[in-house]
């Protein structure tokens, strides 16, 4: 992934900034320019909102066949997490016993290294999840 593209995503990947529609209140992550519910009525009314980072596992898998950049991590747990605010995101669950992962499990965001591109490539950082109480 090109470096400018990577920089553009930093506010959301590092700090979990999403967007809230000023018309209907729907919260989206990553941020959107147009609300999928309201269309053009939402233009200019999308506010930046920071997510709490807390959520619940909706589904999960353990990845055994991974791209080269993720070879070192495998096998790793990947999940779709529904955030407290209602939007859903995809990322890994870390610091967890794989046997303990289940649908409905409560998790919280943690800032981690996501991966890198080749030996001298860019290192990506962002959110992963870990179990919470």
């Amino acid at each position: 992934m090109a470096i400018p593209r990577f920089w553009r995503e930093i506010p959301s990947r590092y700090n979990l900034y999403g967007s809230k529609c000023g018309h209907c209140g729907t919260l989206d992550f990553p941020p959107r320019t147009v609300c999928p519910e309201c269309g053009r009525r939402s233009i200019g009314k999308m506010e930046s909102v920071k997510l709490s980072g807390r959520g619940t596992v909706v589904s999960w898998t353990v990845i055994h066949d991974a791209p080269a950049a993720y070879e070192m991590m495998k096998p790793y747990v990947l999940a779709i997490v529904e955030m407290e605010e209602g939007c859903r995101v995809t990322s890994q669950i870390v610091d967890v016993d794989r046997a303990a992962v289940k649908i409905g499990m409560r998790v919280e965001a943690a800032f981690r290294r996501l991966g890198s591109e080749g030996d001298a490539g860019v290192i990506h950082y962002g959110y992963k999840f870990r179990p919470s109480t």
Partner: peptide, 18 residues
């Protein structure tokens, strides 16, 4: 690519979650 793949989601992984 930006909101699934970069977090380690593979094509099979996404279908696995379905």
């Amino acid at each position: 690519q930006e909101w699934e793949s970069v977090f380690g989601a593979t094509f099979a992984g996404l279908y696995a979650m379905m």
